[in-house]
């Protein structure tokens, strides 16, 4: 369902991810664990096409979410101009002129509302960012409505199902999201991602800053989502409890690359897991 081939990402000249190969099948619950700063968030963002990647590619079902070699955007980009023109211009001061033209007239690109491939793929993916990132000054209901944008007008939106999973959200419908407790905000972020009925849910450290008893509820809720709605789940975690209880299998990431993959047996062993966490 979701696959990366030799994925590499750099911020500026600093390489962050290199040669990441992961693959997730329909219906699975898969974890990615690793210590602070090893590139977990960067990986999730690359998976949903929020970052420009430098190497390899990401595919979701049959859609290419991100491809380092393809010239993604429009015809304004220098790379997409005919080769002969480009090679004639090469080395001259105006070799990059077509690119600059694109800089100057992005209006043209702005006015073509066609969703790009990665946007369309993202429609099948629900994303829960690290730190939850609900919109603080929108109400609970408006936050959920923002989940619709990803599917556009075509989607069927399941408010009832979300309210059934998280009754507190229905109760607090008209409250500003910024005034919810941390755990409630986490539920809201998950609800917002579920609104568009995604095939795949991507969670970036859902347990961060949530008290242990609520972490247990959360783990149970996510299992229930997976069972009842058939949603595939990929989550990033540093929390031992969540990794051991939620994941069916788990990748370990260190210094920007996948260093191990743990099946159910090794996941049950505390020592095997904590080796990759800062516990």
């Amino acid at each position: 369902m979701l696959e990366t081939e030799h994925l590499g990402v750099s911020y500026g000249k600093t390489p962050i991810l290199r040669d990441v190969n992961i693959s997730i099948e329909q219906g699975e619950i898969v974890g990615i664990m690793g210590k602070n700063g090893v590139g977990k968030t960067t990986l999730v963002k690359a998976l949903i096409g929020l970052l420009d990647i430098n190497e390899g590619r990401v595919t979701f079902d049959d859609t290419v979410v991100a491809d380092a070699t393809a010239n993604r955007e429009s015809f304004w980009r220098a790379e997409s101009f005919p080769q002969e023109v480009a090679s004639t211009l090469a080395g001259t001061p105006i070799s990059n002129a077509p690119g600059r033209l694109g800089e100057f007239f992005p209006l043209a690109a702005e006015l073509t509302p066609d969703a790009t491939a990665d946007q369309r793929a993202r429609a099948g993916m629900g994303y829960i960012p690290q730190g939850r990132d609900v919109f603080p000054e929108l109400t609970v209901e408006e936050n959920l409505e923002m989940g619709e944008t990803i599917n556009g007008d075509a989607g069927e939106f399941q408010y009832d199902a979300v309210y059934e999973f998280f009754p507190i959200l229905e109760e607090r419908r008209t409250q500003d999201a910024g005034t919810l407790s941390g755990g409630q905000q986490q539920m809201l972020a998950i609800g917002r991602a579920l609104i568009g009925n995604p095939d795949l849910l991507l969670l970036d450290e859902p347990s961060e800053g949530v008290q242990p008893s609520i972490v247990q509820d959360l783990t149970r809720d996510l299992e229930q989502v997976n069972e009842e709605l058939g949603t595939t789940i990929l989550f990033v975690e540093q929390n031992l409890h969540v990794v051991q209880n939620l994941a069916e299998r788990c990748y370990a990431i260190d210094k920007g690359t996948i260093v191990d993959e743990l099946g159910p047996e090794r996941l049950a062993s505390r020592d095997a897991v904590t080796k990759y966490l800062a516990v």
């Binding site: 929020l50 960012p129 919109f135 000054e137 408006e142 923002m146 599917n151 556009g152």
Partner: peptide
Amino acid sequence: RATMQDAETARAMGV
């Protein structure tokens, strides 16, 4: 309004 509050998350939502 969502964009003005948190552009990055709005982008992740497909805006």
